[in-house]
Design a protein around this nucleic acid. Structure first.
Lengths: 213, 213
DNA sequence: ATTGCATGCATTGCATGCAATGCATGCAAC
DNA sequence: GTTGCATGCATTGCATGCAATGCATGCAAT
């Protein structure tokens, strides 16, 4: 239905930076752009507000961005949830509930991410990095955690779009990804949780300190 | 505005069991009940769907309830988040960023909860228990975590309404609350996280196994 | 008796009109 | 020059009409 069209289109436009943080969106504008009436647009904007991607601001809504403090909060929650999903994924692996092909896919994405980063294809590296983390969350088989993480990833992505910079220590990040994969493959739940949490908090520090030239 | 009225009224009706899990709600019914038009009701129902309290079901929506598996997932996420908030609260206490009155309030609620449980006032005990956990989340000063937890608590509440039974080991639960308070007061972050997680997972087991007579 | 189909109806999704609201802009007064 | 106010306008919130949709119900046919 139209509402879903509006929702996904506008979400994409926000996530790819076409509507940057602070940009003001009005029902009428968006309705005109998408060539539909205000009603479905209105519902889509409300849904985006519930997801934290926009916030009401006087008349209309503006694309939300997490300020320093909020970003820190987001990373803490993300770290806790990714520790959980890593732990659950490792546990499921230990119980033999994870298909070998899924583990292979995880390894592949980790490798591709490292390659893309090393070759300077940062936009793609960002996509692959997210896919890597999402794959783990999917292996955890906890839809609630996955859903919560998708929301947080979206918010963080919007807020750090402008700083699309190379990680300060690419080898370090890739190494952490490998450690994480190894812990999951070996079914070491506690270790996976520990590494996942440390990794997220580690990227937090670098991301929030970097600024694009 | 009307949408917010509809949202809070319907949410309350769901949370107090007036609309039990499985109950079907249509825009027109609710609009008639609340004496407003369909538009704000429609938006409220969509918001509730985003919160996971209702889900679309053919025409209209039905009050959602978590099945065994989903409930398990919810408790895992809740445990991870409450471990985080307990840890953050303890850390803030260690840094002297928590007012003594807030700690006193936390102690009081823990005591009241234990008393209400011991005296068989279970409905009130449930309310106090939630307040206890929310107070900790507020002390953590992480609005994202608090918000996520509110959503999960709501969903769990709806799904366990019918089993409004005394905890199987009231003294045990009260003891865990005291341990948790102690760890926070002493600023022992790791211990607080450990106790919080164990406590949530402990109540999970009992709650999902109990059935009201 | 059971299955398939047609018809009616409940209900939603979307569009649009109208009234309310609050913000911006400009003018006047101090 | 600055501050306060009034007025106009952009924009939203809500109501309602209309068309589309899909489900239920009943009837007929095998």
């Amino acid at each position: 239905m139209q509402t879903d069209v509006a929702l996904s289109r506008v979400r994409e436009l926000i996530l790819d930076g076409t509507y940057p943080p602070g940009a003001r969106l009005t029902e009428m504008e968006v309705a005109a752009t998408l060539e539909m009436s205000r009603t479905p647009v209105r519902e889509a904007l409300r849904a985006l507000a519930a997801d934290g991607l926009v916030r009401p601001s006087g008349r209309g809504v503006v694309v939300a961005s997490l300020e320093r403090g909020d970003l820190e909060e987001a990373y803490q929650v993300r770290a806790a949830l990714e520790a959980l999903t890593a732990e659950l994924a490792a546990t499921r692996q230990r119980e033999g509930r994870i298909a070998p092909a899924d583990l292979a896919a995880l390894r592949d994405v980790a490798t591709e991410t490292a390659t893309a980063t090393a070759e300077g294809r940062f936009a793609e590296a960002v996509r692959l990095n997210r896919r890597f983390h999402r794959l783990i969350a999917e292996l955890a088989a906890n839809s609630m955690a996955l859903h919560a993480l998708e929301r947080i990833w979206d918010q963080i992505q919007v807020s750090t779009l402008r700083s699309l910079a190379p990680p300060s220590r690419p080898a370090h990040v890739s190494g952490q990804h490998e450690e994480l994969v190894a812990a999951i493959v070996l079914g070491q739940a506690d270790e996976a949780a520990r590494v996942a949490r440390a990794h997220v908090l580690d990227t937090r520090t670098t991301t929030s300190q970097e600024e694009r030239a």
